[in-house]
Structure formats: C-alpha cells, structure tokens
Amino acid sequence: MNKKKNLVKIFGFLCGLAMILTAASVIVRPKDNDVYNLPSYVRTLENLNGEKENTVDVLFAGDSEASDGFSPLQFWSEQGISSFNIANPAQILPDTYALTAQAVKNQDVKLLVLEASCLYLDSDIYSKDPYLRAAEKLFPIVHYHQAYRLLKPRSVSFGKVRKTDALKGFWLKTNVREWVGDPDYMGDPAEPAQPFGYMAGDMMEKLYALCQENGIELLIVSVPAPAYWEYSKHNAVNAWAEEHGVTYIDMNQMNEELGMDWTQDSADGGNHLSFSGTVKVNAWLGQYIKDTYAPADHRGDAQYDSWKDALEETGLYGVNS
C-alpha cells in the first residue's frame, strides 16, 4: 500500500514538473521560428522593431564578420541608405532566417546583404548530444533557458519596443592587431569547393525562398578576412550563387582596390575588420549598392530621423547627413 502511494507521489511530482516545464516553454519559445541564440535574437529584434515601420531598406546579416564589418551609419552618412545590421557574433543561418522573417513583417526590405562566413557554421539549432537534443525538443525551455540572460533589471520585454540601437546593429571595435602573411592568402584558385556547415545549405535555400517571396534581392558578400577566408570557401559560395542567379562579391580579391592596410585594418590579426577596415569596405560597398540597386537617398526626410539622430549621437563619420 505504502509502495503504491509512493509511486503515485513520484508520478505526480513528475507530471507536475512536466506541466511547469511545458508552461515555461510556451512563455519563452519564439512564436514563429525556432532559433539558436534566444538572447541575441530578442535583443536584435527589439532594436530592429525600434525603427519606424517601412523605413529599413537594406538588411545586413551574417556572423561576427558581418556584425563587426557593416556599419549602417556609414551607409547613411555617405549614400543616405537606411539600413540595419541584424548580424551577431557566431550567428547561425536559422537565426538570420528568423530575424529576416520578422523584419519583413514591419519593414519593406529591398536588399539583404549576407556575409558568407556564416555558411561555414553548423546551422543546427539544437545540441549535438542526442539526449539533450531530445530534451530541448520535448521541453523548449531546456533549449531556450538562456532567456534568463534577458532578465536584466532594465528590460524584461520580449515584445515590440520603441527602442533602437544607436549603431543600428554594428559592433564597433576599437582594437587593432596587425595581420602578417602572404598577400595571396586565399591560396590556389583551383581549390575544390569546401562543403558548407551542417544544414547550412538547407537553410540557405530557405532564406533564398523567403527573399523571393518578399521581393528582396539577395547579395552575398565576403568581407576581407585574411586569416580565415580561402578559395575553397570562395568557390563553394560562388557555385551556390551562380546556381541561384545571386550576386556574390568576394572583397578578399579586392584588397588593393579597397586600399587595405593590414597593419591597421584588422582588429585581431586577420579575422575581423578594425574600424578603419570597415570604413574602407563600407565606402566601396555602399557605392556598389547605390549603383546597382539604387536604394533611395533618405537624407533630409524626417521619417528617417532615426539614422540622422544616431549619427549625431555617435559623432561617427562626420555629421553630414
């Protein structure tokens, strides 16, 4: 009798626990798309949602190469392009997809610029450990428990907040570390293509389809990264781009044209651009976007004051908006 009662107690406790975990899962799980890194997804979305509706024409996406590389304020300052950078360090394609899918709900995005290095990250949002993976799928709170990192005293909101990031998603780096190496760092152009990261190919198809559905042009770019980028990757990205009729620009092949000086233009010995490196890269890319896709110059339009104000607030690139 006692044994039966104890078994009922254990079973009851476990059922109660399952109910609590299910309820918590419902609270933290994003509504539309599952993501890998919930805190950076939520913060980026909050910042993006802080922009007025239909004011963002261009989105920049990718991993740290993109978050450290593309500065929307420079594009505003030089070409009057209203853009936002939704990239984050180590951001994988499912998170980029989810952010883009959210962005198109409020914004009339015309161009998505994807930095290619994220294609070499595994695009699986769940853990590799099969047991943990099963637990994450059964109780999404296990997958999204990083939500606690959003519990800062200043903000607990998951929703749409009128608040934006002064740098529009750009991660400005002040450090400089020289890169020394072979100027032909990409190796042999005949290198066989290196396959994308796990599931990255599938996610690219999904992202491409999303762009097509929403009339967004997709532009794939590789920012100069002498310690990281090579022809095996270039060839794989190029093949994908050609197959899908998408433009791919590898700026690693344009070091001279861009005037890259690797004593100053790398933040960390060739992996990421320093601020001076981003200035050179963005100057060229902004002009290219302007010439090729002809986005409107919104400087002087009060609807777009968010960019003007941010530029004044940060004091970057001279205040010539």
Binding site: F13, G16, L132, I141, H143, Q146, A147, Y148
Partner: peptide, 24 residues
C-alpha cells in the same frame, strides 16, 4: 516541500550553463 523542489529543479534547468550558447 513540493513547491521548493519544483523551484529547485526549475532553477537548475533555467539558470544552468548548458546547451545552446554555452560550451560543454
């Protein structure tokens, strides 16, 4: 007691350093 142990399990699950975003 039950509330305490539920809270304790939840605390470890929610605040533990494991899974996405953490190195094993």
């Amino acid at each position: 007691r039950w509330s305490f142990w539920y809270a304790a399990v939840f605390y470890v699950l929610f605040f533990g350093a494991y899974g996405p975003g953490f190195s094993a």
